[in-house]
Nucleic acid binder design. Structure first.
Lengths: 120, 120
DNA sequence: TGCATATGCAACCATTTGGTTACATAATTG
DNA sequence: CAATTATGTAACCAAATGGTTGCATATGCA
């Protein structure tokens, strides 16, 4: 998992940034002022969030005169799905079954597992 | 998007926590000591990460004697995919095309868009 | 060409985060 | 039953984060 993926996960960690992506998913190509609508935070705070989204390649921007347009780029989100999130789908049903089995088995037969000393 | 989803996104923002989930995806039901292997950070740091994963319901734990077993719960990851990430898949191809069109159109015909004053 | 609008940049601040060290408690083992 | 092992808890610290306020620059409009 690359540094770029790390940027994507970090960018998505904040609810405000996900909301900005939600807005762009519904209506792409908005200016900073338009994106500020519906948000209580200051324009400079929105600008900071957009910078992180841009750094993660989740949006691309286009300056025209004094206006800056922001466009959604869904490719990195697809990327983390393909490279990481999707791997948890493959055995989602399996995992639930195995979890139940494991819990039942361990409750009945206490298993011994090797452990490691603290790293101090 | 619920507070629980927010916890999931925040939990996944850290590379160390994603690595812990990777380990459990390959081999479920590990103890703290086993999970500490392969990580340079202290046992207490790993414990902190596991607490956040548990708070986000990404893992469930089972205490047996002095040992604690950790099991992967892929349901919340599936949940954020169904409720949020997947929405970006639906028009991933569309979005790329529309982005290109939008950039081309705006380059040729400068459009005026209403903006809002700063919220001070 | 002055005014209005859109955006950029910087400094600041409180909170959160990610890690460490130290000590404590509980369970297991020889 | 003492020693060992596994885990829990707390305090501490530096860095990162998420927001604000203030001022500056660039562009568009009347």
């Amino acid at each position: 998992m690359s540094d770029q993926d790390d940027l994507v996960f970090k960018a998505l960690a904040d609810a405000s940034r996900r909301e900005l992506l939600d807005v762009l998913r519904v209506k792409n190509g908005l200016t900073l002022g338009e994106l500020c609508e519906g948000h209580e935070m200051s324009r400079q705070a929105v600008t900071k969030h957009l910078a992180l989204l841009e750094e993660a390649n989740l949006i691309v921007t286009q300056k025209q005169g004094r206006e800056k347009f922001h466009y959604l780029n869904p490719v990195p989100i697809h990327g983390i799905y393909m490279r990481w999130i999707g791997r948890f789908e493959a055995h989602r049903m399996d995992a639930l079954y195995n979890l139940k089995q494991a819990l039942n088995t361990k409750t009945k037969t206490k298993t011994k597992t090797k452990t490691r000393k603290d790293k101090k």
